[in-house]
Every structure is written in C-alpha cells, then in structure tokens.
Design a protein around this nucleic acid. Structure first.
Lengths: 178, 178
DNA sequence: GCGAAGCATGCAAAAAATTGCAGCAGCTTC
DNA sequence: GAAGCTGCTGCAATTTTTTGCATGCTTCGC
C-alpha cells in the first residue's frame, strides 16, 4: 500500500539497514504497519533506484556488514508531498472474530483459551508501549512538532490495546455462561 | 488469509449470492474482514469445486438472475474443524497514522482535516453498529450460543469505534496547539 | 424506443505479499 | 578445525489482492 512511505518515515530520524528496519517495524510501528524483511529489502532497492534513498556499506565487528540507507533530498520531498495525497486504510483481518461467529457449545472452551492467550499477547505489547510513553513522552505538549505526531500514533496503539483488553474481559465473562 | 472461512461463515444463516456476500462483507463483517467482489466470486468457484458449497440459480424479477450459494455438509464440517486451527491476525495498515509521523507546522492543518473527516466516518459506522445492537442483541445473556459469538464480534467493533473517537478528540486537542 | 444507470457476474493483467530457500561471514562449541 | 548457530542480505516461485475492464439484462427517464 504505502510501504515506501513507511520505510522512508522510519528513516527520518536515523539511517538504518534492512534488518534494522525490519526490527523497527515489529516494534514501534508494528501496531499500524507490518512488513516482512523480504518486502523491505525489495522496496529498499526500488527506492534507491528512484533516487529517494542512498546507501552506504558499514563494516561491523562480530557481524556481517550491513548496508545503511538514508533519505535523499528528493526522498524527503516526495515523503512530504505524499502527506497531502489520498489516505488509505486497510482494516484488521482477525480470524479470532471470525471464529467467534462459529461459536458452539463444543468449541466454546477452545475459544476461551484463544481469547485468553490473545489477551496475554496484547497486554505485553501494551506494557511495551506504556514504557515508551513514560520514557519519551511524559509531557506531550512540550514536544517538538513532529514528535507530537509520533506520540499521537503511540497513543492510538495504547488506546487500541486497552480497548482490546476490556473487550476480552467482557467476552470471557459472557462465554463463561455457555 | 481465511477468505474461504469468512465466506462460509456468512453462509451459516442463509444462502447468499456473490453480490449479496459482497454487500454483507461491507456491512456486518466489514470492520474485521473486507473483500472485494472479484475476490469473492473467485473464491466461490474454488469452494464449489471443493464440494464445500452448492449453487443454484434463482430468477429475479426486475434484476438479472443470481446464483445462490449454500453450505454443503462437507463445508460445514470443514468450517467447524477450522476453528481449532491456528489463528492469524493481520493488523490494520493505516496511512493516517503514518502521516502523523510526518507532522509538521506546514501540514498540521491538513492532518487536522483528515482526522476530522475520519472521525465522521467512524461515527457513522458506529451508529450503524449500535442500531444493530439495540435491535438484535438487547439481552446478550439470553441469546442462543452461536449468536453470543456474533454479538461479541459486534461489541468488538463498537469498542474499536468508541476508542477511535476518543483518540480523535485527544489528537485534535493536541494538534490545535501546533 | 433510446440512452443512461444499475445490478450481477466474471475475466485477465498487474501489483503486492508470502513462502521457502540460499549464500556468506564470523563466532561458538566440541 | 569441523560443525553448528546467528545476523544480514537476497532470489525465485507462488499466492493473494487489486485494478481495470467486459458482458448481459432490466428498469427508468424522457
């Protein structure tokens, strides 16, 4: 969809390599954008060819060399322009909710298990986000402009997580009576 | 991902045609599963070949004929088994949050506009869901088992929507100071 | 009765994403 | 020093999704 812009956005603050980007996507942007490393490497090549990124190889001790990518001026310009274009959303696809449509006496117990497990996963991610908020965004109003945006995205993730936990509790309560 | 199961799940209550399925997806399942009509028609063909669906043509007055699909016994069995398999989630991809990462003094006004617009859209969907809840799920504890699951999925959509509205307000407040 | 609009179905090409694998470097273990 | 593990990069095939039509049939407006 807009993988190119997701990558370029990640490179706003620092130059990163493909594998660093892949890890970043899982962490900070993970809740509203995810991409596999194959996707990222392919896109990096395309963006370099377009002249939006430049690359330089970096020797590392103890690890194989990595290739750092950074935004070019043209890249920064393209990204800034993109903000004014159309905005697409690709809603979640969640097999768990689909499974709930198939709830029965027989599978209720299994689904309770799945919800419990998911609750756990979400709680962990939520914990991570709240740590980040406490550490970097204690005083949102005082942040530099761009970081206010980043903060709001983080807030969105936290809201989402909290909402999901509340829903899990409601679901588990109702399912207990099945 | 699990388009096949999404379609079969829609056919649990009633036999539907391709276009009816496409409309259904937009409405009831829309917030956690979306599919275009091309995807649906293709998948319907595959599922028929597998023997999980049967089809019959229905003459309509005032409209072109449609082809109704219904679950076969094998289809019902496959769907029931699928519930015990692995559950995949494909998180949202939202360009709006990505754009927020690129917030600047210059584009703040534009992004405020986008958030306002999105808030409106979500509010309308939320209104629809709440209407459905009031009409069909006034007393959740009294529902037949399977409908409890459907109710919970609906609740998830409502939670999500409410959460999003709250986030929008928070975002607009913070952005007002930029 | 003619053109426009809408519904239902579908094909085909292109783009995007996933899956599975592989090479290579250095480090660790035995 | 051979075998195995990990980190980084990448290719290739397949599957999934999107995009852009095409067809036929019916009503509706004029």
């Amino acid at each position: 969809m807009a993988l190119a812009q997701a990558i370029m956005t990640s490179l706003l603050d620092a130059d990163l390599s493909g594998s660093e980007l892949a890890r970043d996507f899982e962490k900070s942007m993970g809740f509203f954008w995810q991409a596999s490393h194959q996707q990222i490497y392919q896109e990096l090549r395309k963006l370099s060819q377009k002249g939006w990124l430049n690359k330089r190889e970096v020797n590392q001790t103890g690890k194989p060399n990595k290739i750092l990518y950074g935004l070019t001026l043209a890249g920064r310009k393209a990204l800034a322009d993109w903000v004014y274009g159309p905005t697409r959303v690709q809603p979640t696809k969640d097999e768990l909710l689909l499974k709930l449509y198939n709830l029965s006496e027989e599978n209720a117990e299994h689904l309770i298990g799945e919800i419990t497990q998911r609750r756990e996963e979400v709680m962990q991610r939520l914990y991570l986000y709240e740590t980040i908020r406490r550490r970097h965004y204690a005083d949102p109003a005082a942040l530099p402009v761009r970081h206010k945006g980043v903060y709001l995205a983080l807030e969105s993730g936290i809201h989402q997580g909290e909402q999901f936990l509340a829903w899990c509790d409601q679901a588990l309560e109702l399912l207990a009576t099945v």
